[in-house]
Deep mutational scan, measured.
Amino acid sequence: KEMRNAYWEIALLPNLNNQQKRAFIRSLYDDPSQSANLLAEAKKLNDAQA
């Protein structure tokens, strides 16, 4: 469930391009235990690109 939530949050971040989203989501599938960390990194990048 945590992975699914992280997937959708990443997919809906407005300032990431599709390539960036795909990279984060690929990492999510590679290591679901890192969901919270990956989401935090994606949000950080999203904010930096705002």
Rank of each mutant, 00 (worst) to 15 (best):
K1H: 15
K1A: 12
K1E: 15
K1I: 12
K1T: 09
E2W: 01
E2H: 07
E2N: 12
E2R: 10
E2I: 14
E2Q: 11
E2F: 01
M3W: 07
M3K: 07
M3A: 12
M3N: 10
M3C: 13
M3D: 08
M3H: 13
R4E: 15
R4A: 13
R4S: 14
R4W: 15
N5V: 11
N5A: 12
N5K: 15
N5H: 14
A6F: 14
A6E: 05
A6P: 10
A6Q: 06
A6L: 12
Y7L: 10
Y7N: 03
Y7E: 15
Y7K: 10
Y7A: 11
W8R: 14
W8N: 13
W8T: 13
W8S: 08
W8L: 15
W8V: 15
W8K: 15
W8P: 01
E9Y: 13
E9G: 06
E9N: 04
E9I: 13
E9F: 14
E9W: 07
E9L: 13
E9Q: 13
E9H: 07
I10G: 01
I10W: 00
I10T: 00
I10D: 00
A11M: 15
A11L: 15
A11D: 04
A11W: 14
A11H: 14
A11Q: 15
A11Y: 13
A11N: 15
L12C: 12
L12N: 15
L12R: 14
L12I: 11
L12T: 12
L12Y: 09
L12A: 12
L12K: 14
L12V: 06
L12S: 13
L12M: 06
L13H: 04
L13C: 02
L13K: 02
L13T: 01
L13V: 01
L13S: 04
L13M: 13
P14E: 09
P14I: 05
P14C: 05
P14S: 05
P14D: 04
P14Y: 03
P14H: 05
P14A: 07
P14F: 02
N15R: 04
N15V: 02
N15I: 01
N15H: 10
N15D: 04
N15G: 06
L16F: 01
L16M: 02
L16Q: 00
L16W: 00
L16E: 00
L16I: 05
L16H: 00
L16D: 00
L16C: 00
N17W: 02
N17D: 10
N17H: 07
N17E: 05
N17M: 04
N17T: 12
N18S: 14
N18H: 14
N18I: 13
Q19E: 11
Q19D: 13
Q19F: 11
Q19W: 11
Q19N: 11
Q19Y: 09
Q19T: 10
Q20S: 02
Q20N: 02
Q20M: 03
Q20D: 03
Q20P: 00
Q20A: 03
Q20L: 03
K21R: 05
K21A: 01
K21D: 01
R22T: 14
R22Y: 12
R22A: 15
R22G: 15
R22E: 15
R22W: 14
R22Q: 15
R22D: 15
R22L: 14
R22H: 15
A23K: 12
A23E: 10
A23F: 06
A23D: 14
A23L: 08
A23I: 14
A23T: 13
A23Q: 12
A23M: 12
A23P: 01
F24A: 07
F24H: 03
F24P: 01
F24W: 01
F24V: 05
F24Y: 07
I25L: 14
I25R: 02
I25P: 01
R26E: 15
R26T: 11
R26A: 13
R26P: 01
S27T: 06
S27R: 11
S27P: 02
S27C: 05
S27V: 07
S27I: 11
L28F: 03
L28R: 00
L28C: 03
L28Q: 01
L28I: 12
Y29T: 14
Y29E: 11
Y29M: 15
Y29R: 14
D30G: 07
D30W: 06
D30I: 08
D30L: 12
D30V: 10
D30T: 09
D31G: 03
D31R: 05
D31I: 05
D31E: 09
P32L: 04
P32D: 03
P32T: 03
P32W: 09
P32I: 05
P32H: 04
P32N: 03
P32Q: 03
S33N: 08
S33D: 11
S33I: 04
S33H: 09
S33V: 04
Q34P: 01
Q34V: 06
Q34F: 05
Q34K: 09
Q34M: 11
S35D: 03
S35A: 10
S35M: 12
A36H: 10
A36V: 12
A36P: 08
A36W: 07
N37P: 08
N37D: 07
N37Q: 09
N37R: 13
N37T: 06
N37L: 11
N37V: 11
L38H: 04
L38D: 00
L38M: 07
L38A: 04
L38W: 06
L38V: 08
L38T: 05
L38Y: 04
L39R: 05
L39G: 02
L39F: 03
L39W: 03
L39Y: 03
L39Q: 03
L39P: 01
L39E: 02
L39A: 05
A40P: 01
A40L: 11
A40I: 10
A40D: 11
A40R: 08
A40Y: 06
E41H: 07
E41L: 07
E41T: 08
A42Q: 00
A42I: 02
A42Y: 02
A42D: 00
A42S: 03
A42H: 00
A42N: 00
K43Y: 08
K43Q: 06
K43R: 08
K44A: 10
K44P: 00
K44E: 07
K44H: 08
K44G: 06
K44C: 08
K44W: 11
K44Y: 06
L45S: 02
L45F: 03
L45G: 01
L45C: 03
L45T: 05
L45Y: 03
L45P: 00
L45D: 02
N46Q: 02
N46A: 03
N46W: 01
N46F: 01
N46D: 05
N46T: 01
N46L: 00
D47F: 07
D47Q: 09
D47W: 06
D47V: 08
D47Y: 07
D47H: 13
A48V: 10
A48N: 11
A48T: 12
A48Q: 10
A48Y: 10
Q49K: 05
Q49W: 07
Q49E: 05
Q49A: 13
Q49H: 04
Q49C: 06
Q49I: 07
Q49G: 06
Q49L: 11
Q49S: 06
Q49N: 07
A50D: 11
A50F: 06
A50R: 11
A50S: 10
A50P: 06
A50Y: 05
A50I: 13
A50K: 10
A50G: 12
A50N: 09
A50C: 10
